[in-house]
């Protein structure tokens, strides 16, 4: 089955064609692929109007990249939530319009389920059940995944998301944007044991990164001078380890407590090289099998939405054309 995936829940406008829920024929992301000139040179930021400008060229690019025409598409999967209503509505409206015009089934997909869906697009697909950490700028969640549509929340952040903590730390040290990538790079030259940043909520599988942010702020104040390059690398490495340690420890503990020996990682922060390395080392020690998609599938994309959507569509499950976008949609609360 040839499925067109559409994603517009946050900053990226994305479209993808996926075959049989596993094979990516094209995967176009507007803020990363050089097609900006098509719609005036603006990278889509938060504005839904930017999604509106981008969505049609992006879908066209995805069809072209896959070497198919709209007449070949057999179903449509679109991110229905959670996210910004104005942004989601652009994708949902386009998906429903194409579905109506072409008489195709259309299904709404949860964005977080989509991140987990990225795991079904890699060569070595995890068997059910597995425990999945979804970690990005806006999310830090641990789920038990029993099936394509059965997710149980095992842990979540109580304040800041991990990706947000990276970004704000970079901001405090004037390192620029995107903070996660810069800290990842600088940390490679630093000593992670230099500063003992706090690891919060040790006994719980929930996360808290707000205290770590304040600890960094207080540390920077005690320096009495603006940190030099070497200091910054040490701070970045120490700060990064404080985040990586808790992400790895809590996820593996959640897996052990659920008696599950497969752990998966997804979301934008899953591209962090230190996180990948520590996850590999620690899961190997515990005899846990680890699954991580490549970076392009970790960031927001539409292939992951098509991957999950295909599972519904192939079973004949679709949404009526009165389907609406939802800003809040906890995963596991049903379709």
């Amino acid at each position: 089955m040839l499925v067109l995936g559409i994603e517009s829940s946050c900053d990226e406008t994305a479209a993808s064609v996926v075959s049989d829920g596993v094979k990516i024929l094209s995967n176009v992301i507007a803020s990363q692929v050089n097609i900006h000139s098509r719609y005036g040179g603006v990278v889509p930021e938060v504005a839904s109007r930017h999604h509106i400008e981008a969505i049609i060229p992006v879908i066209g690019e995805a069809l072209k990249g896959a070497g198919v025409s709209i007449g070949d598409i057999e179903g449509i999967a679109v991110t229905r939530g959670p996210g910004l209503i104005g942004s989601l509505l652009v994708g949902v409206s386009v998906a429903k319009s194409i579905a109506f015009a072409r008489n195709l089934p259309c299904v709404g997909v949860n964005h977080i389920a989509g991140h987990i869906g990225a795991l079904f697009l890699i060569e070595n697909v995890p068997a059910f059940p597995f425990v999945s950490l979804v970690v990005s700028g806006g999310h830090t969640h641990i789920y038990k995944v029993d099936n394509y549509d059965r997710f149980t929340l095992l842990g979540q952040t109580r304040d800041d998301a991990a990706g947000e903590a990276f970004d704000k730390a970079a901001k405090m040290m004037n390192l620029g944007y995107p903070g996660g990538v810069i800290i990842d790079t600088m940390a490679k030259k630093g000593d992670p044991g230099k500063i003992d940043f706090p690891r919060a909520m040790k006994k719980s599988t929930d996360f808290s990164f707000s205290g770590l942010k304040t600890a960094l702020l207080n540390y920077l104040k005690t320096l009495n001078h603006f940190p030099g390059q070497e200091d910054i690398c040490d701070i970045a490495a120490s700060f990064q380890d404080a985040i990586v340690d808790v992400l790895v420890e809590k996820t593996l503990r959640a897996a052990e407590e659920s008696c599950i020996s497969r752990v998966a990682l997804s979301g934008g922060v899953a591209s962090n090289t230190r996180l990948r390395k520590v996850f590999m080392e620690e899961s190997a020690k515990k005899g846990i099998e680890l699954f991580i998609p490549p970076p392009l599938l970790c960031t927001d994309n539409a292939a992951m939405i098509a991957a999950i959507g295909s599972q519904y569509l192939e079973k004949g499950i679709s949404d009526a054309l009165d389907m609406n976008a939802v800003s809040r949609w906890p995963l596991g609360s049903g379709r």
Partner: peptide, 26 residues
């Protein structure tokens, strides 16, 4: 965000809802 968590409590937002930072989700 801590102040907002307090405001949520004052507005009787149920405790199972964690009031988290909207920096990325807006």
């Amino acid at each position: 965000t801590t102040l907002t968590q307090g405001i949520a409590k004052g507005l009787a937002v149920p405790e199972e809802y964690y009031v988290t930072s909207p920096s990325f989700t807006l």
